[in-house]
Write a protein that binds this DNA or RNA. Structure first.
Lengths: 159, 159
DNA sequence: GTCGATGCAAAGGCTTTGCACAGCC
DNA sequence: GGCTGTGCAAAGCCTTTGCATCGAC
């Protein structure tokens, strides 16, 4: 699965970008922060992880990252807008990679089993911008949470 | 401010409806449950309260309701779909009155000061239904959270 | 009279914080 | 070498739960 061609330390690539952002805020580039952000980059844009999950996944790595540091890094990276915090229905705080190209980005969640699908919608972004503008607000991002029943759960009589 | 023309116990009106719903689930109508739901009805549809706020507001009343019971009632009333639980950005769990007429209903939140405005949008509901249908899901409700900057906070340089 | 609901207080998650040491710049 | 970041463990929310009593039906 993974690249077996890089027996070197960890992820030298793209660190520069992160380093620059951090230095701009008077902060330092540390292996822990690289590892947290790297994890999100590795799993891709659509994945949502809780702090605990990030911690667990990083345990598998050569070096561990303490849970406290995971929380600190998540907060820092979110404030830098490299990650984004989600409020999904039925679930604790989760984080995902924030991509510049996606200021809108939506979740379809099954209230039965928790299965989550992502989707985009230009119409929703337009509606969000219209609403923001109408109140004199400047839009940062908009997130649509659709609570629904997936085919399987809709079929069941429910407990 | 309040109606001074009803020196009677509390809210006999509409209790019947609540009683029926409760009995249908094998539950009882208690003054506490009436008071919690009554509070939300009094403050109207657009208001979001946390458990703690509900508790505080009910302290002012003749009889108090314990915080544990507030939590229990909020959960019960939400499961009965009389209330609805919100996940607003930057804030803990909050509840509001669930009206049958609003299966969509959206929030514009200032990330600077937390000011929240509500709005409706047929376009958003349509987009939500399209997305749900496209995945074979059956829509229950959709909530759009727009994170934005209000005019005042946009003007400030931010700390 | 029965069985569920309440109040209190204690327990339970999840998240943050204080402090000494390690490591980035 | 200075000063920030880390790890650990303890403290801090917010929420739930156990148990005796109260009260709706």
């Amino acid at each position: 699965m993974a690249a077996s061609s890089s027996p070197r330390s960890s992820e030298p690539l793209a660190s520069t970008e992160l380093r620059t952002s951090l230095h701009g805020r008077g902060q330092r580039l540390t292996p822990q922060r690289q590892r947290v952000l790297g994890l999100f980059k590795r799993i891709g844009e659509g994945s949502h992880l809780s702090a605990e999950e990030v911690h667990q996944r990083l345990l598998g790595a050569e070096q561990r990252v303490s849970l406290a540091t995971v929380y600190r890094s998540l907060r820092l990276l979110s404030s830098m807008e490299l990650l984004r915090e989600l409020e999904l229905p039925e679930g604790g705080r989760r984080f995902e990679l924030a991509s510049d190209t996606h200021r809108d980005h939506h979740h379809l969640v099954c209230v039965g089993c928790g299965r989550t699908e992502e989707f985009d919608s230009a119409a929703v972004l337009a509606a969000g911008e219209q609403a923001a503008g109408g109140h004199g607000f400047r839009l940062i991002e908009c997130v649509l949470n659709v609570r629904a029943l997936c085919p399987r759960c809709a079929a069941e009589p429910a407990s």
